[in-house]
Amino acid sequence: MDWSPILISMKTASLSIFITFFLGILAAWLVVRMRNPVWKLISDGILTLPLVLPPTVMGFFLLDLFGVKGWIGSFFVEYFSIKIAFSWPATVLAAVTMSFPLMYRSARGAFEQVDQNLISAARTLGMGEWEIFARVLLPNAIPGVVSGGVLAFARGLGEFGATSMIAGNIAGKTRTLPMAVYSEVAAGNMDTAYDYVAVIVVIAFLSVCIMNGAAWKAGKETHGG
């Protein structure tokens, strides 16, 4: 069995959840703070789009932007001589894009459920906005934020559609576990496909257990167990 899809998937899923986690929280905080309801609605719509569009359509957009002839893609080629499309970073790009809305929406929901009086009280006690975010809002939203992280991680690990569009299915380079399953089945190697499937199931199950445990522990601590 070729181990590279497992390594590639682990690398991609870990880096992408790291990026998504912070981006999602930041985006949620910014949207929650928006005063203008119209802007809020529009921003929310755009940020949620990857969740509701077919993954191939998102992959199409990514290709359009990050392809060698795309705005961003051509910029990278010209100034850094880096080709993003069909390289390993593209798998991360696809995973981040597709898992982002889950993180963002979970974090936003968790922030909105924090008692607004806590925020107001913090303001009247002279706490700065950033301090309020770090010491009041985030700690009291941790269980929801962490479970958003679980979902986003699982989504990133299983990402297929957008990855195939922007990163392709290059063995040893961009072939992630879901890609490998697809390729092995297409080639009629059901036994190898079984192995990959087993690995995915184990990783997914373990990660959900670990993160759920963390969320439970965090929740307990916040409420003074």
Partner: peptide, 16 residues
């Protein structure tokens, strides 16, 4: 910056 303290109905103590 107002230096106005506010006692909320539910006290709004930080649970964490």
């Amino acid at each position: 910056r107002r230096r106005v303290g506010y006692l909320f109905q539910n006290y709004a103590l930080f649970p964490n």
